[in-house]
Design a protein around this nucleic acid. Structure first.
Lengths: 299, 299
DNA sequence: TTTATAGATAAACATAAACTTATCTATAAA
DNA sequence: TTTATAGATAAGTTTATGTTTATCTATAAA
């Protein structure tokens, strides 16, 4: 069976007008062209679809059945066309964003604003640590990711959108809280709370300590920024975190930053996607939105 | 937008295998042929449906949406194909039969047997008098009709399937009940119960009386055979009816036939349809069934 | 009976669709 | 670096589609 969309279109017109000639006019075709299309369709289905009695034509039973299927199919096609049409704009569809957990403190606000501006976009947010975020990218799950500096070997298209200074935090009553320019080696006996391995913050911290030729004393390993902050607040040790994650706590005076030499580590956040990714209009809009928001924040 | 069924087929295969090359193998095509079909579909919808990352391809969001529509459409097509396939056989679909009311006494049995032999055929039966039956034929409502001799001027294909003698009936206690060869003119003072005008039996009766140069005394005009029979049984007068309509009553001795000269009028029943009508396999099967049943009954 | 209308059919042709072959490019793996 | 694989691209061919023109048949209406 080799039914074509054209055949169905022509058939529908003939069935509706109950006239080959009228259908031909409507479709801007000649009458023989219509005759042929119908004949081919009848050949495909192996049954007559019309019967002619005198000058009038009628649908046969098969024709009636075919008409209903035909209209169904054409409706489906129209629905598909409409959805595609919507997807061509930036105000529809799904937007899958994965963000490194550190970025969360900043990004959720961004997303809230974007969601308000694009109410019919379904946003799927996924907050995770750097490592698993890279795995998701590898599996092509997210449209866009917000993260620290992406690895160079992964063929990503990335652009920085915001500064991300890493600072040393301590409990408010820490003895060095008011000292200036603390040499890192003065902290040799202090325990450090560290994020789980796979965390970008953890990696940045270790890189920094290696650069400084400082072998740190590992206090405790904790999952996620919240746990680290709470641990520091409770006096379990020091930690290196993104300043954005502790803005609240610094203002409320529940944590302090230590003015250690070489700190803060100046890093940046990036909006990234895999090279080759066909960004939807919505994803592009979000990307530009993030970059613009970063610009604004840095002024 | 000009989406073709072919494009959807190819697209579905690529989306399922997530490979142009595998899809091409499956469809017995070359890989470039597949590339082209996809490209055209993408052109039609105005969006990329796949994204390539390294060697792997993925569906885009638009692709995912399109795939679901695509499968819908192909399912519809398959459903249509299946229904057409069924309709090609004699064991499906609708069968619209209109029968003249006189034929009812015989035809309902026929239909019952046919219905039992073709259980998935939906039979739509319509019992009415000759005139309105001809109107229905004109409007191309029934597939087949069972009736008395069809008018020659209506371009019908008809074939007799059964004898239909018209007899004169009377109440059992009628004074002429046992007389033989009653001359018609002996009935000049008797009232006749007649069917409504538009009835074939009524027309046959009047034709017969005109031929016999007999002007009958009209007793009462009644709708349908049952009313006539009951009227005769109640002694309201005589009537001319098809012998098939009174078989029961004759056996039960509730009515008798009068042996009037020139009677019975030998008429026949016909199975007929409009010329040009595309009889479904089912309708053809029924037509042959009726003719065979008539043959059998006449032996 | 004549006339007008609807659809079927056939021939000839233009256009577009669907393929194939051959070649090229990029990527992943050896 | 080389090799194999996946897909893109270009050119050319076959097949299908749509078209016109002309003619034919059947029917309904004048």
């Amino acid at each position: 069976m080799h039914i074509t969309v054209r055949q169905l279109q022509v058939f529908e017109a003939v069935a509706r007008r109950l006239s080959y000639t009228r259908a031909a006019e409507e479709l801007h075709l000649t009458q023989p062209a219509v005759s042929m299309q119908i004949k081919q369709l009848e050949g495909s289905v192996g049954l007559p679809l019309f019967e002619q009695m005198g000058k009038k034509i009628y649908l046969t039973q098969a024709g009636t059945a075919m008409l209903s299927h035909s209209r169904n199919i054409m409706q489906n096609l129209a629905a598909a066309a409409e959805e595609m049409n919507d997807l061509r704009g930036a105000d529809s569809g799904r937007l899958r964003i994965s963000i490194a957990s550190t970025v969360n403190y900043f990004a959720t606000q961004l997303l809230a604003v974007f969601a308000r501006e694009h109410p019919s976009v379904e946003i799927i947010l996924d907050v995770t640590n750097r490592e698993s975020l890279l795995n998701r990218l590898e599996a092509n799950v997210p449209d866009l990711v917000l993260m620290g500096k992406p690895p160079a070997d992964m063929d990503l298209v990335s652009e920085p959108f915001m500064d991300n200074p890493l600072v040393m935090i301590a409990a408010t009553d820490h003895p060095l809280a008011s000292r200036k320019k603390i040499p890192i080696h003065d902290l040799a006996n202090t325990g450090f709370l560290v994020r789980e391995s796979g965390s970008g913050t953890r990696a940045a911290m270790e890189r920094f300590f290696v650069e400084q030729d400082f072998s740190y004393k590992k206090g405790m390993e904790l999952m996620g920024n919240e746990a680290v902050k709470q641990g520091v607040e409770a006096g379990l040790g020091l930690a290196l975190v993104s300043v954005h994650t502790v803005e609240q706590e610094l203002v409320l005076n529940r944590l302090v930053t230590l003015d250690v030499e070489g700190l803060p580590i100046m890093r940046r956040w990036y909006v990234a996607h895999r090279r080759g990714k066909r960004l939807s209009a919505t994803a592009q809009a979000f990307r530009e939105f993030v970059l613009a928001a970063g610009m604004k924040a840095s002024n």
